[in-house]
Structure formats: structure tokens, C-alpha cells
Simulated assay, not measured.
Amino acid sequence: MSPQSKKLRFIVNGALFAALTAIMAQIEIPLPIVPISGQTLAVGLTATILGSRQGAVAMVGYAALGAVGLPVFAGFSGGAQVLAGPTGGYIFGFILTAFITGYILEKTSFNLPMAIVANVTGMIITLLCGTIQLKFVLDMTWNQALAAGVYPFIAVGLIKAFLASWIGIIVRKRLIQARYIKEDTQPAAS
């Protein structure tokens, strides 16, 4: 495969997984401040399947689509005001989460136990990033921010981390078998 083809595949993968995240964001359970949505499951799947760089690029693409006003965030919302609002920290956290989750897997092994460790780590990163912005945007105490932005999401976050690990490892193996992705999913250097 030529370097141009590898770069194109890298971009297409990022776009596909940004779209997957946008679709899964619309699956939500409303809560008073921060809804439970399928976004975090999509982030875990993205990182588990694509790895650190492609996963982070997909999440940058997702955030950028929403920033320009496309309704890709939870509840069909979009715009810079969402990123600057109480839940924006979670969206920014998706970028770091995808990178760190994928990085852990790249440095260890793409297997179920390591994927669970990586996705639980990613869940913690997302919750921390979201809670920090939630605290400052809504002028909450740390206890209030944790009560609104972390505690309600721990149990469901662990379930999503397991699902992202399990499904992600299976899909990744099948994509490798189909020669759609390689063990090394990074693009060729320019």
C-alpha cells in the first residue's frame, strides 16, 4: 500500500469513527446536568480498534464537527457554546482518552484484559476532564462537581469500558484478518 493510500485510510478511519461517535451520542439517558450517552462507549471502541493516533484524530474530528455547529453532540446539540459549557470538558477529554487508551494497548497488547485496563483508565480520564470544566463553568465546589459529574457515571462507565474492550478487540481482530487495518495502524511518515 502506498504512503498516500495509508494516509487516506487513516483519514477515512478517523471520519468513520467520528461519525460513529456522533451517532452513538444520540443514544442517551437524560440526567439533570450531564446525560449518560453512548459517546463514551464510542470513544472506547475507537481507541481499542484504531489505537492512539487514529483514535485521537477521530475525536478531534468529532469535536471539530460539533464546534462548527453540526448537531453531533448528545441531544443533537452542536456549536462552540457546547464545548465552552458545563459538558465541554467531557468532549475535550475524549481526545485525551482515545489517545491514552490506544497508547496503553499499543505499548502492552491488544487483548481483553489489557483493553479493560486501558478503557477503565480512559473512563477515569474522561470523567476527570469533564468534572474539572463542570466545576469551573458552573462555579461548583469539588464535592458538588464530583456528585454531578463522576459518581452517577461510575457503574455505567465500567459497563461501557467492558463493552468497548470486548467488542473492540473482536472488531479489531476481524479488521486485521480482512486486511482493512494492520497491527500497526499508524500512517506512513511524510
Rank of each mutant, 00 (worst) to 15 (best):
T21M: 00
Y62H: 13
V34E: 08
N13R: 13
A18N: 06
L31F: 14
G38T: 08
L50D: 14
I23V: 15
Q39R: 15
I49K: 03
S37R: 03
I33S: 11
G61N: 04
A56P: 06
T40C: 00
A25L: 01
S52W: 11
L20G: 05
I11Q: 08
A47E: 12
I33L: 11
V57Q: 04
A15V: 14
L41S: 03
A42Q: 13
T40I: 14
A58K: 02
G51L: 02
Q54V: 10
S52N: 15
G61Y: 03
M24T: 08
V43S: 05
V34S: 06
N13H: 10
G61S: 09
G38K: 07
I27S: 02
T48S: 12
I27C: 01
P30Q: 11
V60Y: 02
A64C: 12
N13W: 07
F10D: 10
P35M: 07
L45P: 04
I23K: 00
Q54S: 15
L50A: 14
F10I: 05
P32R: 15
T40P: 03
Y62N: 07
I36E: 01
V43E: 12
I36K: 08
L41P: 05
V43Q: 11
L20I: 13
N13E: 14
G61P: 08
P30N: 13
P30F: 01
V43F: 06
P35F: 10
V43D: 09
M59C: 04
G14E: 05
T48L: 02
L16H: 10
I23F: 07
V60P: 04
I33H: 09
L41F: 14
I11C: 02
I49N: 02
L31R: 12
T46I: 01
P35V: 14
I36N: 00
P35Y: 11
A22D: 05
V60R: 00
M59K: 01
P35L: 12
A18P: 07
Q26I: 02
A19R: 12
